[in-house]
Design a protein around this nucleic acid. Structure first.
Lengths: 340, 340
DNA sequence: CGGCGAGCTGAGAGCGCTTCCACCACGGCC
DNA sequence: GGCCGTGGTGGAAGCGCTCTCAGCTCGCCG
């Protein structure tokens, strides 16, 4: 006899035998115990306890057609999506909410088009009950998911933005940007610059639109495109100062760029907010913490958006025919601090 | 008749019928086709193609006892572990290697001790074939995993460092630090400072040990503890300059702190490397890119470590009795650039 | 030309679970 | 006091797959 290290895990059969009931009754108790006399249910529960019984997931899935797992798909056309604190917060929200629903998170990482096929196969293979995806750029991944027929929810609006029947969760980028700029206007600022994000991301263009909503005929020289990084923000701030010395405010499309802008202003001896008021976007704790002076910014509840994505998906799963909103746009809040 | 949107997925039975063979033969073909006449195998493969057949994972798992999935466990006692570029690279390596082995990545996120129990239950429930964990701090999670009996591999050395029978993958932090300091010595520097990481992380203390290996009787004033962040590095550099004006070199325990140190030096008008030579650790692309002048640093192959973790785990899974090294320490390389 | 072994193939027995359905034992009602 | 309804329980049929084992068909050797 070679080994017997792995003691066979007890089955429902064993639990039923120990409790002196049938497998059917044991199963009922394990799944909530509706319609079982309390006395029997207790016996079964005790047997479960004593045997340290854990249901076999595969067997259960085989008959119920439910996996208890959701795929989170990360497409990574750009560098460092994963390391983005934004992404971290959103996945955290998703993770927490999935745990609350007793569901597992299967991470699918797509690095290129080759991976797209693999992901389609995986989703089509019925390994997961649903999918959550972030589509920062194009809509190839979303349309691929739509084709598999797996219930899904999107985070952020893809540039293509065609509605594929997949619900979408995003924050009110445009409205938040409007609030930021209006706040600067309310402060009496008249030369308000904007450091935008890359034009191929809808969050960046939406915020730019918000800026233009308030400043309809803004001088094009007051616009400078950044790349959502601190270095990019610092560089853009330098360009703006050189180009328009009269600037008295700047709205950066995210906190990280605002941080870079603050650095450039400090290096050039420009006072914040006296000479130039600065507003960011995101209210990212890890970034805001480093800002000097404290950064006025537009808060979006990123973790909350992740949770909403899961909730929406759960509704989709519970009732396949059920109507679900095509999109959920979460509100933003202006957080006033020292910089504006 | 309500709906019939979800066309039932074809089973092996259907494939077998279409190919005119038995289910057993069809199964053999689907699983590699060893011992089946080519003519029959072709027929089966064609049937698979035509029916767009995808094996039912649950059914397969039920009989093979193999899930084709590995848990990646993230313990997060501190803030922003997830957003750490280090972590990102490691998970990327893991993800890639798992894909190569046709395995899925199930993400388990532990935020507190309550989650520990949930994770133990999940692992004990046999949902995954193995587990990978990062233990940056204590050894509670590792010992918990050891208790479940699930094959596992650790990334990084937990502070407790008791060997629980779980293999461990780490880079040669101490040797890398020695190389860095030796390089500075070779440059003729004599007042070499060290900005260390937090003392509760083994990577930080190992690098500190490496520093002391070369500079056995280093002046304690040349040591300053940072927190692995850019701000911390900048602050530490300031402290060191104030404390020991004669400093002519500094070895920072990671690139991010080196970046902060460079900034402080620049702000104070200290020339790098003429006045003070600077060496970092990690060779993190996203960080190194921002360094001015180009940062000399110690490269560790983080993604490679992730891949090795998976490879080790696969060996564990393939042959449970098989001997596997208790730890794999990967080498580091000094990358000479402009800063030292 | 007969026999034997090698090489394929298929029938069938499960893997552990859920769930339909038949059955049984009550209590309440006429 | 018999009858029906109700609520609880168990038997048994699968979910889709793998894999053992028996059986069959050849080819080759004596």
């Amino acid at each position: 006899m070679p080994e017997q290290t792995v003691r066979a895990r007890p089955t429902l059969e064993a639990v039923a035998a120990r409790a002196g009931v049938s497998r059917a009754t044991a199963s009922r108790v394990v799944n909530g115990g509706a319609g079982v006399r309390p006395a029997l249910a207790d016996k079964v529960r005790r047997a479960v306890e004593e045997l340290d019984y854990v249901p076999n997931h595969a067997a259960r899935t085989l008959v119920t057609r439910r996996n208890g797992a959701v795929a989170v798909i990360i497409a990574e056309p750009e560098f460092r999506v994963f390391a983005d604190p934004f992404f971290e917060q959103q996945v955290r929200g998703i993770s927490r909410e999935l745990i609350a629903h007793d569901m597992q998170l299967v991470l699918l990482w797509a690095e290129g088009s080759g991976d797209h096929e693999r992901i389609a196969r995986y989703l089509g293979g019925g390994h997961v009950d649903g999918a959550l995806a972030f589509s920062l750029h194009d809509d190839r991944l979303p349309s691929l998911i739509a084709r598999t027929g797996v219930p899904a929810v999107l985070g952020g609006r893809p540039a293509g933005s065609e509605h594929l029947g997949i619900p979408l969760v995003d924050c009110d980028n445009r409205g938040g940007a409007r609030d930021a700029v209006r706040h600067l206007v309310g402060l009496g600022r008249s030369r308000i610059a904007h450091i935008s994000g890359p034009r191929d991301q809808s969050s960046a263009t939406d915020r730019l639109h918000g800026y233009h909503d308030v400043l309809v005929d803004a001088d094009p020289l007051l616009l400078c495109e950044g790349d959502f990084t601190e270095e990019g923000g610092a560089r853009a701030m330098g360009v703006l100062l050189d180009r328009c010395p009269g600037i008295d405010a700047v709205f950066a499309a995210n906190d990280t760029m605002a941080l870079g802008a603050l650095r450039t202003l400090r290096e050039r001896g420009v006072r914040v907010p006296e000479d130039v008021a600065v507003v960011g976007f995101d209210d990212m704790p890890s970034v805001v913490r480093a800002a000097e002076p404290a950064l006025t910014t537009v808060r979006q509840d990123i973790e909350g958006m992740g949770r909403i994505m899961v909730k929406l998906l759960m509704r989709l799963l519970d009732a396949p025919g059920q109507e679900v909103p095509a999109s959920v746009i979460t509100p933003t809040t202006l957080i006033r601090r020292a910089s504006a």
